[in-house]
Write a protein that binds this DNA or RNA. Structure first.
Length: 578
RNA sequence: CGGCGUGUAGCGCAGCCUGGUAGCGCGCUUGGUUCGGGACCAAGAAGUCGGAGGUUCAAAUCCUCUCACGCCGACCA
């Protein structure tokens, strides 16, 4: 394309309300414009990148045997009531009524619709397995959209749903999708990790997230340096302070005054005992205000996702100050399991505390010499603690977990029969018996993937696209678009176009500096500079955006060199045959 | 949802405290000189000062309400 005909409104100044690199750079490079909070227009350059991501996604999904379809963004509330999510999904579900007062929503995801379709159209086990996907805009009314495309309200997503007669077949498909995702993100040229994850509001029981590693990522990940174990911290396990056997001491249970000391640090310092001798007691409640006391060693933190799963509730909330007073009889800071009239669940770390210290359910008082089993009992034990950087790996010998930040660009779920049972997703098996099918679902945030690619690939001058995602592979920059420079640039441009290269000819009547700055900002991987002196020597000057190093090439070889460079760059991101 | 903040030309901002002609930079248009890392000169176009109500002779400026947007936070006893 000729630059002069393209709509690429670049801007020099930093956008006022953008914070992260991808947001700033997409605004500056003329890729996106905000229409409303978390809602963006994708300008031609962004649309091209999205097309490239979509193409990779389609190729790999098709290769894995999935079929593309397209479902409506507008969905009847009826379906959501049937699945139970009309009530459960919360305010993120954008609801509205049609003229007849019928309830609808904008689809944040499509389990309901796909299951409806499946229930109506598929009747026999002979039609299984089946995997259907679409690429479509989703709407989630996020509490706080932020960081440009990283957390938008309307965003492009590839969502796939698979149906199987047995759990085994479903898990097999899960593995196929996992592999397809590995190939997709590899082909996108991204540095990413597949990590074990919690299943969240979608439901189900097995899940991996695909996280693009970047400092600005919203997710925290722990990954082993020895084996391939990696998990979202929400889910991560570590070899930490779990004890099989309860440690019991001999000190008597003693009530001691601890005036005004309510934090772990304060109590620890005041009583001159380490935080690992304290048993922290936190009061949580669920949506129905059922209270539970959670005990954990003082130097550890509760992982609320693990707690939520252990209690098998929709959500857990730390009790308010008032509620704490109501259920423990003492202000915040003095809760303890001894004599507490609430169900107590303990993290495994509590077993390691002998002669511990806890709140005494009385203002300004703590107990010392507290022993599990002797002074209090737990209703249940579970791994409820937050795993931390530097702790041991539970999956291998000697491995250590390290923290990373990640941007979740994809997730695969094993759903089981959650939706099929709720919505008549059944087939007849070979014995003629009706069976609810096993389902999996598999998502990729297409627009977020674009943002993540920029987070991972940029410098002070702009974006540095990996070749597979670059909106254009080559930009030809004539110092002046006239006379011999124009002729040489035009010839090279025509030649590259004929060879199928995605190329921009910067034919604008701008000074060279302007064109260079824009080329860098847009992040085009290869730039050919057409200058008077070099073409007088029969040469083009060219460089890679990645290293900026200037190279010279005989004019007649330029096309071949570019084709070869593109090929190498693409090969570098081609997954090994599998 | 809570806290803080911001809405003035397409973008970035000043003006508001102390009411009285709406301004600067970038961008845009026209002409000219330039031309290897965001040129220069000259002349222009462009704003219901987020919206509604109020105070006042007079409101971008003061008051009330409202909308939109952004940042931070969402509790570890």
């Amino acid at each position: 394309m000729r630059y002069s005909t393209l709509m690429i409104p670049t801007v020099k100044e930093l956008p006022a309300d953008a914070v992260v690199a991808s947001h700033i750079l997409m605004l500056r490079a003329g890729m996106i414009r905000k229409l409303a909070a978390g809602i963006y227009v994708y300008l031609p350059l962004a649309r091209k990148v999205l097309h490239k991501i979509e193409t990779i996604v389609r190729e790999e999904m098709n290769r894995a045997g999935a079929q593309e379809l397209l479902m409506p963004a507008v969905q009847p509330g009826e379906l959501w009531k049937e699945s139970g999510r009309w009530a459960k999904y919360g305010p993120e579900l954008l609801r509205f009524k049609d003229r007849k007062g019928g309830e609808f929503c904008l689809g944040p995801t499509h389990e309901e619709v796909i299951t409806w379709l499946f229930a109506n159209e598929v009747n026999s086990y002979k039609q299984l397995p089946m995997n259907l996907y679409q690429i479509q805009n989703k709407f989630r009314d996020e509490v706080r959209p932020r960081f440009g495309l990283m957390r938008g309200r309307e965003f492009m997503m590839k969502d796939a749903y698979s149906f199987h007669l047995t759990r085994e077949e479903c898990m097999e498909e899960y593995r196929v999708m996992y592999d397809a995702y590995m190939r997709i993100f590899t082909r996108c040229g991204l540095n990413f990790k597949a990590v074990e994850a919690d299943t969240g509001s979608i439901g189900g029981s097995a899940s991996h997230e695909f996280q693009v590693l970047a400092q600005s990522g919203e997710d925290a990940i722990l990954a082993c340096d020895q084996c391939d174990y990696a998990a979202n911290v929400e889910k991560a396990e570590s070899r930490g302070v779990a004890f099989e056997e309860v440690q019991v001491g001999n000190d008597p249970l003693t009530k001691v005054p601890t005036p005004g000391k309510h934090s772990i640090e304060e109590v620890s310092e005041f009583l001159k005992v380490g935080a690992e001798k304290l048993i922290k007691t936190l009061i949580y409640h669920d949506d129905d205000k059922n209270f539970t006391a959670v005990c954990i060693r003082g130097d550890q933190d509760v992982n609320e996702v693990k707690l939520k799963n252990h209690l098998d509730v929709n959500a857990v909330y730390l009790a308010s100050d008032d509620d704490v007073v109501k259920v423990t009889g003492a202000p915040v800071g003095f809760a303890g399991p001894v004599g507490l009239k609430l169900p107590v669940v303990c993290d495994l770390s509590v077993k390691s505390v002998a002669d511990g210290v806890t709140g005494a359910l009385e203002k300004d008082m703590h107990y010392t010499g507290v022993n599990l089993g002797r002074d209090f009992t737990a209703e249940s034990f579970a791994d409820l603690r937050q795993a931390k950087d530097g702790e041991g790996c539970t999956r291998c010998e000697g491995g250590t977990l390290h923290a990373h930040r990640g941007i979740e660009v994809g997730q695969v779920f094993y759903l089981g029969r959650k939706y099929s049972e709720a919505m008549n997703g059944t087939v007849l098996d070979e014995n003629g018996a009706s069976k609810a099918v096993e389902m999996g679902c598999y998502g990729i945030g297409v627009t977020r993937t674009m943002a993540a690619a920029i987070e991972q690939n940029h410098d002070d001058n702009g974006i540095i696209w990996p070749m597979p995602l670059a909106p254009y592979q080559v930009v030809i920059t004539p110092i002046l678009y006239k006379e011999e420079m124009k002729e040489a640039a035009d010839r090279l441009y025509t030649d590259l176009v004929e060879h199928g290269v995605d190329v921009i000819l910067d034919d604008r009547n701008e000074r060279a500096g302007v064109k260079f700055k824009d080329a860098d900002l847009l992040g085009i991987p290869i730039r050919v500079t057409v200058g008077k002196k070099s073409i007088a020597n029969g040469e083009f000057e060219w460089q890679l955006r990645r290293d900026g190093e200037r190279r010279m090439a005989p004019m007649e070889q330029m096309t071949d060199i570019i084709l070869e460079t593109i090929r190498k760059e693409m090969d570098a991101h081609t997954p090994t045959k599998g």
